[in-house]
Design a protein around this nucleic acid. Structure first.
Lengths: 231, 231
DNA sequence: CTCCTCCTCAAGGAACTACTTGAATAGTGG
DNA sequence: CCACTATTCAAGTAGTTCCTTGAGGAGGAG
């Protein structure tokens, strides 16, 4: 110890350790897994379907994430449920995406190709939505799969999974603004919802990001399941 | 567009794009480069020496970082200077380290092996240091290489690069607390400084992290070079 | 212009990564 | 205890990454 020649091997090993975390996120399929897990815990089979990979491969990717501590597991009966190790991991994922949007030239094109033209979708910022919920002049619709809604959602939101939205539009009051949200800024569900609602003549916009960002900002959430609006 | 089957290829491509950013940080040498560049811009030869790699290899790693937009360049005469693309990148690096510390089991050992026993080093938190600087009852010492100090430092800090500290201890007033800082929470300079100062009977502690975190927290910095304390 | 310095690019080999298929394991429910 | 289900492990292959060496630019000084 003390003031001496730099300990190259030790420094390299430490930074290799940091790099392992980045490497774990350095695969598109694992990134998708983290994105889904930010909504709440899921079992392997379910996750495999979500990312469109084989179960064995998905299990392998989950192990990679678990080895560096980004995810944790819990067994329930025959199933193994994976979850993010902490909200900090969701925060890391969020910052990573922001940097990608700000600096990585090709993200714009890729996002445009996947999400379609977003110019018409007018984003609602979190603070604006907080205010409008307080004023009570807006309906907040969670268009994620119902299980994700049940695991946690924006306080006061109703659950209408995107695939049921077309059938349930008529149950929404016609003269109130609708704000749709889903998993995050790069999730298509809310985009699709806004387009559909507008086609039906409703005033609809989407939240700028999704539930994980809302929760990480310490804004009010509900975790007790609320009965889904049925027709 | 609209409510239809998920566009798997498009989604995969987008998330591969995000993963590229992580992949760029997913190498220990590139992580070291980002850590150094968070202090300010540097030219290639200098960076190669800093990370202990060949110039060609360093140039290659820098190109990798530049391709995904994490770093930017500027030419001055025959030299090419690299810098982080923005403060957001330093923020990403910082969050990544925090997650590593919180969740990656082996970081503790690696950090202990590299940094030595830190228990005795009593950390000073940023907010405490802000208060004590305002009270004027502390000397803040920047122990990084002088060029990094010149590129930006905590407002009011004096520059005593670690390799000169032993010779300059006598010039520090004896009855005032000293707080040392350097590049970040995993930089050895400040640790070494505190150990040295204590051996000489001074009251010394280290700042919890380093200059990049101070600047990113929007705390007061100086960028105009201040004459170095000489003996 | 010519030389020099600093940096980047290209080729090549060792080591690693991603995904597939098929076998093994752990825990449950009867 | 047996059969079953969900998950993990193992082996194999195609593709990628890291680092080295040496050649090829770009810009400035003389």
């Amino acid at each position: 110890m003390g003031v001496m020649v730099a300990d190259r091997a030790g420094k390299d090993a430490l930074f290799d350790g940091f790099a392992e975390i980045a490497k774990a996120l350095g695969n598109g399929r694992r990134a998708e897994l983290v994105d889904v897990l930010a909504q709440g815990e899921r079992h392997v089979e379910d996750l495999a379907a979500e990312i469109g990979q084989s179960i064995a491969n998905t299990s392998f990717h989950l192990r990679t994430l678990a080895t560096v501590g980004l995810v944790a597991t819990r067994r329930d009966g025959t199933r193994v449920y994976y979850r993010l190790a902490s909200a900090q991991v969701a925060e890391l994922w969020s910052v990573l995406r922001e940097v990608a949007v700000a600096h990585h030239a090709s993200i714009d094109e890729l996002a445009a190709a996947y999400l379609g033209d977003r110019d018409a979708l007018e984003l609602v910022r979190r603070d604006e939505l907080v205010r409008r919920i307080a004023d009570g002049d807006v309906i907040v619709v969670d268009v994620r799969p119902h299980l994700e809604y049940a695991a946690g959602h924006i306080a006061g939101a109703v659950s209408i999974p995107i695939e049921r939205l077309a059938r349930q539009v008529r149950n929404l009051p016609a003269d109130v603004d609708v704000v749709a949200y889903c998993r995050g800024p790069f999730c298509v569900f809310a985009d699709d919802a806004v387009r559909l609602l507008r086609k039906r003549g409703r005033r609809a916009r989407r939240l700028e990001d999704g539930f994980p960002e809302w929760r990480n900002a310490s804004l009010p959430v509900q975790t007790a399941p609320i009965p889904e609006r049925t027709s």
